[in-house]
Write a protein that binds this DNA or RNA. Sequence first.
DNA 1: TATATTTGGTGAAACGTTTCGTATGGCATG
DNA 2: CATGCCATACGAAACGTTTCACCAAATATA
Lengths: 329, 329
Amino acid sequence: MEKTNPTPTMKDVAKEAGVALGTVSKVVNGLPVGESYKIRVEEAIRKLNYQVNSYAQGLKANKTHTVALLIPNTITPFFAALVYHINLALLKRKYRMLLCSTDYDPGLEQEYVAMAQQNKVDGIIGLTYNPDLLLDDATPFVAIDRSISARIPCVSSDNFAGGQLAAEKLADLGCRNVAFLRIGSSLSNEPNKRKAGFENGCLSRGLTYEMKILNDGEPYGEFENFLKEHRINGKLSFDGIFCVTDTLAHSVIGMLAGLGLRVPEDVQVIGFDGTRHFGDQEYTCSTIVQPVPEIAEMCVELLLQESRQAKPPLICLPVTYAYGGTTRE
Amino acid sequence: MEKTNPTPTMKDVAKEAGVALGTVSKVVNGLPVGESYKIRVEEAIRKLNYQVNSYAQGLKANKTHTVALLIPNTITPFFAALVYHINLALLKRKYRMLLCSTDYDPGLEQEYVAMAQQNKVDGIIGLTYNPDLLLDDATPFVAIDRSISARIPCVSSDNFAGGQLAAEKLADLGCRNVAFLRIGSSLSNEPNKRKAGFENGCLSRGLTYEMKILNDGEPYGEFENFLKEHRINGKLSFDGIFCVTDTLAHSVIGMLAGLGLRVPEDVQVIGFDGTRHFGDQEYTCSTIVQPVPEIAEMCVELLLQESRQAKPPLICLPVTYAYGGTTRE
DNA sequence: TATATTTGGTGAAACGTTTCGTATGGCATG
DNA sequence: CATGCCATACGAAACGTTTCACCAAATATA
């Protein structure tokens, strides 16, 4: 009578195949084994529908083939794209992904890090906002966008060059007076780099410019006031806007439409990130594109590479401009 | 001399505290232990910075506090919102989430399921498209949107009612001739339910209607043709459009603008999903809102509830209408 | 044919928990 | 003061792998 084992173990397979435990282990792990043994074991595995217990594996090998990703949320399109492409890069290397959505909460970030380490993931990729995140040095860590410490590698896009590119593009498209728009006083400093680059670009191209930080609470009212202050004889005193993110750009475009201003005829708008609908070729606005697939690939590569480098690299990837209907081209 | 143990175990803690292994285990798991013991153990844990090895735990208890989520991608806003809210619901119960992005690939879906089961996650939540997905009955499974088998509970929003609501809303807002738009011949059947509901609503309100499936490849050209066919004396023969998703609605609105048609003055547009930018109060278009937080909560609840019910429930959650600027109100 | 050498399968030990039968100390009872 | 009982800490066994020292068989060498 066949004894139906609910979840067969290596021992069961060994018995079924009439071989030793270690032999089964070798077959499972692809180590060299005599052909006849291999066949018998594989048959037994099929017959019993055996699957390795990766928790036993993890316990023994202290390796889990799992990486934790810390990210504020999955809804912001840039984050969503990051999650997607990091998942892809991990899948390619047969790694699994533990998703940790932190909501920008430093406490939660720390909690997730502790959990990830306790959970013995093989590494952590983090886009975090806790300036004094506590890391053990047993678990490799790669930061995105924000350098955490001198010991931690960091991958980001070239935010300064992006700001500069936006200014140059607006200048090329005929703008003379431009504005930089961002929301709130974010904890991160990419916006500052984008702003600095934009400023630099404006200066080198002789554009007059204006910087405006919208209040997080009610950007609409503030933006309207901003526009009123800059309207002379019914005409806007600027003809180009660089928004710190595409999301903000979308809002701004909506507000402009609500105020009877045409984009790109009256004002040209450039965003930042390179958001687009999935599978769609079209960008949702003219934008500075972050190379998300490359960022993802680089993070995973750095995280999983065998040799820790003495001096952790700070990678800065190039950005590009893409037309998305909110500029003249 | 203090021996610096790289990763202390329960045994180390026991030695440090001068108690037995089992006592440490009890303290760690919050089981009743004499107060003096508890204090000594907790002190030792702090001193050694001990953390439980959850792989040993998983091996022993056959419980991992981890749930796998299968979803086509994280970029489509509806999916992104699902991921976010399911993560939240899991976090509340101190569960972790293994994210499996499947790209609509049935093979990859099956692979992930096998991996999840092998990995001994405590359960799987899946929005999948493989009609003959193979599941073992050891791992609880909850389906989203698509009922997989009679043995598997399924959570979805009321797509039929949503379609109906869209028709009624358009009727209320003064439309007389409307169109239903979708892209491609998706494998899923929610679009069909939305269409059926819409049809039903149109009939009961006396609207004339038209159904159009846009080709996945080049929706723009097709849509333009569709419009041309329905233009009589320069005027469109319909005044309301119901799009099967918000994403499609956005594209359609862009196309309409490109053709010189005003939304909502010339045509009113209603989407489906309830997409909005993160933290923003505003919907990106007028839309039928899926109750994503409730869907997430329900999935997790069903998955983790102790008692498997004899007859797995098919949950159908109510949808609502929300104004987003692309209708009269 | 006898010995050295290699090849490759064997199975016990160990990874860090949880569990549970056993042992011990304290307290109540007669 | 002796006995019985209860509460609770103890620690060995088990979970399912991987690893490695050991051993048997097969081949090569003299």
